[in-house]
């Protein structure tokens, strides 16, 4: 869960892709080769209608399945690892796989192992860990546990390509300006035109998210022009000095 400032991006970041381990039970045995073939057919865009008991509108929608790995299969139970878009119903997926196989199938067990960049082994904390950290802080004045339980929100943009900006561009961005080429300090090589990017300061603070208007190599070469259009701003105003001159119709920052 995200606190205060970070609530602004949790949707974008956490609703990206998820990875599940699931046990699918087939109602009649099929060939492993046949099963693998059908699983392969489900990789890519699929149509799903949300189940009866769901919190979203029940309209047919498309979701992308990025990967399905078959870990184990004994003719009845199939252990799968599925990497998919957020909002993909695994129970539905198992059911549909059963339909295509012609024998029927349903989901027996499910565990999510990754949300966005967070794997289950990394920073996962239990409620009592939070309580313990808060008590240590309140009663002993030590914030070491609290700083472990709560992680910098910046961790959530691990997987996004980053554009680092110079100190001089930060304050204008927090006031709604677009990012121009001279304001860029560094860019991750994976940035492509149209990519969702994380805009960060040279200290690693997340300024916000934006859409790249050019590729990494073009951004490196460019002397002027807008290179990133911000879509969400996280960083508060007033942390960095105001560098721009008051001028009407100013398009970007540099």
């Amino acid at each position: 869960m995200a606190l205060e400032r970070m609530t602004r991006i949790i949707g974008t970041v956490m609703h990206s892709t998820k990875e599940y381990v699931c046990v699918m039970q087939l109602h009649k045995p099929v060939d492993e080769a046949r099963l693998r073939e059908v699983l392969g057919e489900f990789v890519g865009e699929i149509y799903q209608k949300p189940p009866l008991r769901s919190s979203v509108k029940r309209a047919l929608r498309t979701r992308r399945i990025h990967k399905i790995d078959l870990l184990e299969y004994d003719g009845r139970y199939a252990l799968l690892v599925v990497d998919c878009d957020a909002g993909t119903y695994m129970r539905k997926l198992c059911w549909d796989i059963g339909l295509v196989l012609g024998v029927g199938a349903h989901m027996r067990e499910l565990r999510r192992i990754r949300t966005g960049p967070f794997r289950e082994n990394g920073f996962l904390v239990r409620l009592d860990d939070v309580a313990e950290a808060v008590i240590r802080w309140r009663e002993e004045g030590k914030d070491d546990l609290l700083r472990k339980v709560v992680v910098p929100g910046e961790y959530s943009v691990c997987h996004l390509p980053k554009v680092l900006v110079r100190d001089s561009a930060v304050e204008s961005l927090t006031h709604g300006a677009q990012l121009a080429a001279p304001g860029v300090a560094a860019v991750e090589e994976s940035v492509e035109k149209g990519s969702l990017v994380a805009i960060m300061t040279l200290k690693g603070e997340l300024v916000g998210l934006g859409k790249a208007q050019a590729s990494a190599s073009e951004i490196l070469e460019a002397e002027k022009g807008i290179v990133v259009k911000p879509t969400r701003i996280i960083l508060e105003r007033g942390l960095y000095p105001r560098m721009w001159k008051p001028r009407r119709g100013e398009a970007g920052v540099g």
Binding site: G122, L124, V130, R147, P152, G153, Y155, V170, K203, I234
Partner: peptide, 25 residues
């Protein structure tokens, strides 16, 4: 003099820019 390295933010600021990855029971 401006801003913070995220890990070194003062606690109140640190929490406001924070995230808790909860293993929900």
């Amino acid at each position: 003099r401006h801003g913070f390295i995220p890990k070194m933010r003062p606690l109140d600021v640190y929490l406001r820019y924070g995230l808790v990855v909860v293993d929900k029971p």
